[in-house]
């Protein structure tokens, strides 16, 4: 079972890398780009075949390692 995890910074947490990307896009001539936020994308293949169990498993993984919930949110997509 394929699972995709997006880890993003919480609102209000300063993202200097996102800011630098935004500035560079501006200097390349891309106008009207605002609020650039950089995150992480993690793809997993699980031997689990039950979608609910897979979600529960990955949720645990996110809490224990994949995200630092002090500053990050995570979103899990089960691809089947």
């Amino acid at each position: 079972m394929k699972v995709k995890v997006h880890v993003t910074l919480k609102n209000g947490v300063l993202d200097p890398q996102g800011k630098a990307i935004e500035n560079t896009l501006g200097s390349l001539g891309f106008k009207g780009v605002n609020n650039v936020r950089q995150g992480k994308f993690i793809e997993l293949t699980l031997s689990e075949t039950d979608a609910d169990k897979a979600r529960a498993q990955v949720d645990e993984m996110c809490k224990k390692l994949l995200a630092n919930t002090v500053i990050e949110n995570y979103h899990i997509d089960i691809e089947g």
């Binding site: 947490v13 300063l14 200097p16 890398q17 630098a20 630092n68 002090v70 500053i71």
Partner: peptide, 10 residues
């Protein structure tokens, strides 16, 4: 408590 993030000026 807390976390260490990328330096503000990168």
């Amino acid at each position: 408590p807390g976390v260490l993030m990328r330096n503000a000026h990168l």
